[in-house]
């Protein structure tokens, strides 16, 4: 897992490299003053240590205006430079990225919840495609939390009662830590998550699979069925508003009495509807052609159940 130390700049996100550059810039200035002051301190301490048996005679020096002006002015200028450099990168960090995907982040004791634009919510794991800007819209359900991705050099407190934002642009594929950086209670140190940055194709594949899975799991069977109705293309032949199309309308189908083209009549119950999906041309409704393809195999059992549940709602 990539875990760059600060001297090897992190390339994980858009700003991480810039932040590290500021860090190294400050480190250079601080390093210079560190060597200068500590060097003089130690050098003077050794050079001017009291020597045994020597009569002490020290000069009466009380100040030196020129020197004092120098060590006021030069550090001041350097400080302004540090401020200005840090400012530019900070502004870049806070500037909204265009075309950013919006992800809702809800923090609560002690979980991160990420809601994708397609409505899926995932706890403690955020997957993002590489090179795609993201806007995190963050709010807390209880106390203050802090969203922190060290590798991205990004951090933002998450408040109850008002939104805070974070713009991310992942630049490198990998798995990164998400920490809660603002103390939030007993489980604070376990309020961690993963930020997984994926290559675009893999991300799309993952996304499709997740959406598929979601249809199976997260929704009510009827909702799932509605989605399947659309994705499997049922609406091409069957209306839901009562008008006949290539096939009979599905409005009010469940529980209705159906007359078949062999003259028999029966009540359209679950079993009939299941058979009609798996062996559609065994019991064809009067007045229609036996042209419907079988969905046996292409629809899983729970998907068939979901479609039936959907059909029950079509009244």
């Amino acid at each position: 897992m990539p875990y760059p130390t600060i001297l090897r700049a992190s390339e994980a996100s858009l700003v991480s490299h810039d932040v590290d550059a500021v860090f190294i810039f400050i480190l250079a200035i601080a390093g210079f003053f560190f060597v200068l002051t500590q060097g003089l301190l130690i050098y003077f301490a050794i050079r001017y240590r009291k020597k045994k048996g020597v009569e002490e005679s020290t000069p009466y020096i009380t100040g030196n205006h020129a020197l004092e002006v120098v060590w006021i002015v030069i550090p001041s200028l350097l400080l302004v430079a540090i401020f200005a450099y840090g400012l530019t990168v900070f502004i870049k960090m806070r500037t909204p990225l265009p075309n950013a995907t919006e992800i809702q982040v809800t923090a609560s004791q002690f979980t991160w919840s990420f809601k994708y634009p397609d409505g899926r919510s995932v706890a403690n794991e955020l997957r993002l495609p590489v090179d795609q800007p993201v806007k995190l819209i963050m709010i807390s359900r209880d106390v203050i939390h802090g969203f922190f991705v060290p590798a991205f050099r990004q951090k933002q407190d998450v408040l109850p009662g008002s939104y805070t934002y974070l713009w991310l642009l992942p630049k490198r594929v990998g798995t990164y830590d998400i920490y809660c950086s603002q103390y939030c209670g007993t489980g604070h140190s376990l309020m961690r998550g993963s930020l997984i940055v994926m290559p675009q194709p893999q991300y799309q594949a993952w996304l499709a699979a997740e959406q598929q899975k979601q249809k199976a799991g997260a929704q009510s069977p009827a909702e799932h069925g509605k989605a399947l109705f659309e994705s499997a293309g049922c609406g091409g032949c069957h209306s839901i508003d009562g008008s006949p199309k290539v096939g009979p309308t599905l409005k009010g189908i469940f529980g209705s009495r159906v007359t078949l083209n062999n003259g028999q009549s029966l009540v359209a119950d679950e079993e009939y509807l299941r058979e009609s999906l798996e062996e559609p041309n065994e019991q064809v409704v009067q007045g229609f052609q036996p042209i419907m393809p079988s969905f046996k195999g292409s629809l899983k059992q729970d998907e068939i159940s979901a479609l039936i549940a959907y059909m029950k709602t079509l009244k």
């Binding site: 480190l27 500590q38 301190l41 540090i82 400012l87 922190f148 990004q154 950086s181």
Partner: peptide
């Protein structure tokens, strides 16, 4: 003397916390 030595380190590392860009990273760490 150790005050001076250690406070120099404390003071210089304060620069990283005072600078906006780097503080975002090292704050609360």
């Amino acid at each position: 003397l150790s005050f001076i030595f250690l406070f120099i380190i404390g003071g210089l590392t304060g620069l990283f916390l005072g600078s906006l860009a780097t503080d975002v990273h090292v704050h609360d760490t």
